[in-house]
Amino acid sequence: MATCLYRVGRWAFRRRRLVGGLWSGALVLAIAAAAMAPAGEEEDLSLPGTESQKAFDLLDERFPQSNSHGAESRLAFRAPDGQRVTARENKAAVEDALGSLDGGGQVASTTDPYETGAVSEDGTIAYSTITYTADAVDLTEATKSALEDAARHARDAGLTVEIGGSALDSEEEPGGTTEIIGVVVAAVVLVLTLGSLAAAGLSLLTAFLGVAIAFALVAALAVPLCLTSTVAILALMLGLAVGIDYALFITSRFRDERAQGSEPEEAAGRAVGTAGSAVVFAGATVFIALAGLGVVGIPELTKMGMGGAGAVALAVLVALTLVPALFGFFGRYCPEPSARHPRIAGR
């Protein structure tokens, strides 16, 4: 394998324009496919064969008018100091607030705290549970506004009202602040470790390209394969992690070979032939582990595993081909270790 990878590294270095063009074309095609593909819809997570899933299925069968996966909200009412929620005026305010929610387009049911006994022993606090026919991400703005309006009307009547539950939860979009912070930290660590913006940027650039292709392919296949945003998030995280890692292996080896006097093309071949072998075995291990999630028999886990495995496979291919190709373009800007540690070169 090392000999084969050595030849791949030298070939990619010599044919760097061809390799760079092929990967750029793959990125453009993947983005175009994602742009033309219809947007995928989020599906309820199901766990076939588990006791909890059987319970959800039974609830849906016995109570088809409700959604066992639907959003839920709680309105907690507290009477003013020295008063009780069971007092006539306060009780009327609570019932008016809950009554404004009855009959809403996505409201499955509301509980009356005075009938269900959801009133504290001292009579100062009561709460109602509102269930919806849709999950939190599918609730309309009108439904959410109705919940907030009900709470505001009760507050205007003198009650203290708090809203809980999942109805007002917002879903974070893939590629949010967490991923950006992670990339910034990774860039700082790479620059400090390698002592070169070019070397650090090369690792980040190749990782970004692999992640972009993987992310675009997940978006393009979302509808035919029923992929959710969770698959895209996993592909993004794994692609960034292993993409930076694998590119760093080969880049570090390339710099070591250059420090020992090898010509750029020879150094690229040796870097891929040696460090590339570790990349292949590491990537294969992660690929098999992720693909093995399909053995569990849970559709969502299978999709997540295959999406992550695809991102890892792309990271390996990018590291073995695009990284040595970029050495041909930017290798001279990557300082050799001996430039910072002269004593190492003299040993």
Rank of each mutant, 00 (worst) to 15 (best):
S196K: 03
G164W: 03
L205S: 11
T178M: 11
F208L: 13
E173K: 14
S166V: 07
A235W: 07
A198E: 03
P224D: 08
V231C: 10
V185W: 06
V211G: 04
M237F: 11
L194Q: 07
L194I: 08
V231K: 05
S166E: 06
L238D: 01
A186Q: 10
V223Y: 12
L194N: 02
V188I: 15
L168V: 02
T177H: 10
G165L: 00
A220V: 02
V218C: 03
L204Q: 07
T230I: 13
A220N: 01
V191C: 02
A207H: 09
A186E: 06
L192D: 07
A220P: 00
F208Y: 13
V188P: 03
A186R: 07
C226S: 15
L227Q: 07
A212L: 13
M237P: 04
P174E: 11
S170M: 08
T177V: 14
V184K: 10
A235F: 11
S170V: 08
L238R: 04
L205K: 06
V184W: 08
A232Q: 15
G164L: 06
L190T: 05
S229F: 08
S229Y: 09
A214E: 05
A187F: 09
G165W: 00
P174I: 04
L227W: 09
G176T: 04
G164P: 01
T230W: 09
A214D: 06
I180E: 09
A199V: 04
V183S: 09
A222E: 05
G210Y: 02
A198V: 15
F208H: 12
G165C: 01
T193P: 10
V231M: 08
A212M: 08
T230V: 14
F215D: 12
D169Y: 11
I233C: 07
V188Y: 05
E179M: 10
A198G: 09
L194R: 04
G182T: 09
